[in-house]
Design a protein around this nucleic acid. Structure first.
Lengths: 157, 157
DNA sequence: TATTGTTATACTCTATAACTATA
DNA sequence: TATAGTTATAGAGTATAACAATA
């Protein structure tokens, strides 16, 4: 389990650019999604984490605890699944379960310091933008940010 | 296996917008990645496909056959893994293995017509851009496309 | 000798259903 | 009655190692 068989090819990224600029822009975004996914899987493998475990570590914020419930929703999987994922992360000392006083059915998941360290390692591998990103000017970064805000429909940030 | 427990929440998408416009733009892109991933998992579940199977169907193009080898690289997983995924897709009649004359070690995977139909169904659920995307003007679509081209470092398209 | 794909193994992911404890 | 989390189960994903066929 050392990620030896994983590679970073980027072939088969063609045949998607037909049509108007809107279709082309969306095709480029989907290409970015694919690259990001591959990079994520490779990073997880190198850190000896299964994809679900790495996803959970990224979903958990270093600051605030998250109910198992919410974690399942973020990972788009069943609650019973999260039980197992948190079990394994807990047995490796990466997360901990905390009781929640205000509703005693709920358990909160928090990153341990080892978990925060591991999360930073994942982010160091997948959380950095591609090389071309840094070459944009400050004005272009603002332009891109504003366009993405409207695409997402998110007024915060 | 009917996707009943899957939801589309979009909470916990905050705390990532600190810093300069570049960091904000990248945070927005990562937010889009997360949304797209959740949408993909929900779509796969609704179509009674496991994530790996749906990923394989999306990776295969309707036109040209792909070696098992290449499919494994695209999915960032081991060759032995692809054997099982293709086995199950083949038993459902969604793909077929083809011999490759020029190198008889290689087998090509092709989508059957049922497989192409299923692929279109996946794309109908995850291949459409978010609502905000359609609201951009033609000029803004071109702007976004050009910025993304430079981010990706891709001169085609 | 190296590579493609398969098999065997062990472990993890995933959803469903049934269960406990709490609300 | 409804909800949060667990358990049990069955099937699928995942990497490693060993193997056969081919290059």
């Amino acid at each position: 389990m050392s990620g030896s068989a994983l590679q970073t090819r980027s072939t088969a990224e063609k045949g998607t650019g037909a049509g108007d600029p809107a279709a082309q822009a969306w095709a480029l975004l989907r290409m970015l999604f694919g690259r990001q996914r591959r990079q994520f899987l490779i990073a997880a493998s190198q850190l000896e984490l299964h994809p679900g475990q790495a996803g959970a570590l990224l979903t958990l914020t270093p600051e605030e605890p998250m109910p198992m419930n919410e974690l399942a929703a973020q990972l788009a999987c069943d609650n019973s699944n999260v039980t197992g994922i948190v079990d394994r992360l807990e047995s490796r000392g990466l997360v901990a379960r905390q009781p929640y006083e205000r509703d005693r059915r709920v358990k909160h998941v928090v990153l341990t310091s080892a978990g925060k360290r591991m999360r930073r390692q994942i982010l160091a591998r997948v959380g950095r933008p591609p090389a071309g990103f840094a070459e944009l000017s400050a004005a272009e970064h603002r332009q891109l940010r504003d366009l993405l805000q409207r695409v997402i429909g998110c007024d915060e940030l």
